Amino acid sequence: MFAEIAFLLYLGHLLADYPFQTDHQAAHKAGCGRQGWTANVSHAATHVLLCALLLAVGSALLGWRLPLLPAAAAVLWIGATHGFIDRRWPVAAWMRIARQAGWAAHGGAAHVDQTAHVLALTLAALFLAV
């Protein structure tokens, strides 16, 4: 069941990060003030909604019996971690600590960002599969 849950959560992540993320969210989700936080929270909420929807569809089609509270906790974890990572400073801080300034200057932050998101999704899938 872990593989199926992880796949559906990853699909939800890709959908929320690419076809369902608006230009405004992408441009402002790391910004300060109301505009930045609104873009960040609305983008994170898209992740929560899509991942919850895919878990519900997976449960219905594959006969899973996911308990409601752990499933809700998992998708809230995904939303919270996604919003945190997308503030951009955590990725920049990691890359400074890891001495990856050269890689950061050549597009590496996007890869570190996506890896952090996949780690959070994997932890959620492990939590639900146990």
Rank of each mutant, 00 (worst) to 15 (best):
F84Q: 04
F127N: 07
T115R: 13
A105L: 08
V41N: 02
V112A: 15
L121A: 07
P90W: 12
A93D: 12
L121Q: 05
L121D: 07
G83H: 05
G63V: 06
A6V: 03
G79I: 09
L62K: 11
L128S: 08
A124R: 03
W77Q: 06
T46A: 10
F7Y: 13
L69T: 12
A105S: 15
V91R: 05
V41Y: 11
A129Y: 00
L68N: 02
L53R: 00
A45Q: 01
A71V: 10
A26S: 13
A120R: 10
T38S: 13
F127T: 08
L50P: 00
L11C: 12
A6T: 02
Q21A: 09
L66A: 05
I97T: 13
Q114E: 10
D17A: 03
P19R: 01
A72V: 15
L53I: 08
R88L: 09
A16F: 00
Q35A: 14
H117D: 15
V75M: 10
S59D: 06
V112N: 09
R87S: 13
L54T: 05
Q100C: 14
Y10W: 14
A120K: 11
A16V: 01
G31T: 01
H13A: 06
H13M: 08
Y10V: 11
V91F: 14
T46Q: 01
Q21H: 01
D17E: 06
H111Y: 14
T81C: 15
T38W: 10
A116L: 15
V75A: 04
A39Y: 02
H106T: 14
F2N: 02
A60D: 04
A45T: 13
H47K: 03
K29V: 06
V57R: 03
L53Q: 02
L119E: 05
H82S: 06
P19T: 01
G102N: 08
C32N: 12
A27T: 08
A44P: 01
R87L: 15
D23T: 12
D86C: 10
P90H: 12
V57D: 02
L68P: 01
M95P: 02
L50N: 00
L119W: 15
A60E: 09
R65M: 04
G12R: 00
H82I: 03
Q35Y: 08
A16K: 00
V41I: 15
A129Q: 05
A56E: 04
T46G: 11
A26T: 07
V118C: 11
V48Q: 04
I78F: 08
G108W: 11
G108E: 09
G107D: 09
A74G: 08
A98M: 12
F7E: 01
A98K: 11
S42T: 15
A26F: 13
A124E: 04
L9F: 08
V57E: 02
G83E: 10
H43A: 04
V57F: 08
Q25V: 07
I78E: 05
R99D: 10
R65H: 14
